[in-house]
Nucleic acid binder design. Structure first.
Lengths: 152, 152
DNA sequence: TATTGTTATACTCTATAACTATA
DNA sequence: TATAGTTATAGAGTATAACAATA
């Protein structure tokens, strides 16, 4: 990932201007949080997009691939490999839709449900860690609200 | 980039759970803001990392490549091509340091200073647009504060 | 020995175009 | 014709390893 111990070298470099740019701070925070995610999920070998896919399938069983992909803003072409990996690991089922034989209906397997339960525990711990960094639940609510205003 | 008009297909997909995850919303907001950046900077053919590099060189003339790269958390190996492109465009100078002949001291050219002045105007406009989405300057300050707490 | 800039390389993420089978 | 899933492919971004020149 990122985050080596090379920050001492940039001591004394004036960076206040760029640090007050929303996009710059957004990117830094996002990289930091995703890095924490990858550390926390290392033993589960699960990436952020895979986690959100499992959550969405769990709460919307039987939906088409394209519907899940669109909800996550993932191009359907890129979603194929992601879904294939989850299916190969036995976490989800790709079932040909009865009403539209072009479409795949997605479901969690029992194994996938168990796996997701564990993943949610890891994610909840991470979220709690982030809330502590933010300074409490109110700050988290504020942040989510502000971020949502920037999306679209 | 992203953002095609495929959101109608995900209508009715329940996504509240994943939408309340900090990392997920961070990623969405970051992608949205970077997309706006790429639209705004299309005519200048400038990427976010290049913009921040120009700003840092302007405020820290004569610094080594590694110092600027570290301040931006860019690996020095990846910084080479970025600096080469800016130098090839005549925006920056790579001068062999007098005190350490291994090192390159970085400077903006006069052309680079003019170019950056224009780029800063574009960035300021974008920032203003984002502040309006956030609901004012106070919200922007809050957001920057919260984001900084998540970085490292 | 350690550091600077560099090259080579690989992996992930994301984007588009085009195919097939269905509708 | 249009859509769902798929394949192929290309461009960014980011990671590591290793080398030459210099300290």
């Amino acid at each position: 990932m990122a985050f080596d111990d090379a920050d001492e070298r940039s001591e004394g470099v004036f960076a206040e201007t760029i640090h007050s740019v929303i996009g710059y701070q957004l990117r830094r925070a996002q990289l930091s949080v995703f890095h924490r995610f990858s550390v926390a999920f290392d033993h589960l070998d699960l990436r952020p997009a895979e986690y959100s896919t499992l959550v969405l399938i769990a709460e919307n069983p039987g939906r088409k691939q394209t519907e899940i992909a669109d909800a996550l803003q993932i191009k359907r072409a890129n979603f194929v490999a992601l879904v294939t990996r989850l299916a190969d690991r036995g976490l989800i089922l790709r079932e040909q839709s009865a009403t539209d034989r072009r479409a795949n209906a997605l479901y969690l397997t029992d194994c996938g449900k168990q796996f997701l339960a564990g993943a949610i525990r890891v994610q909840d711990e991470l979220e709690h860690e982030l809330v502590q960094m933010l300074g409490g639940d109110a700050a988290r609510g504020q942040l989510l609200d502000l971020l949502q205003r920037l999306s679209r």
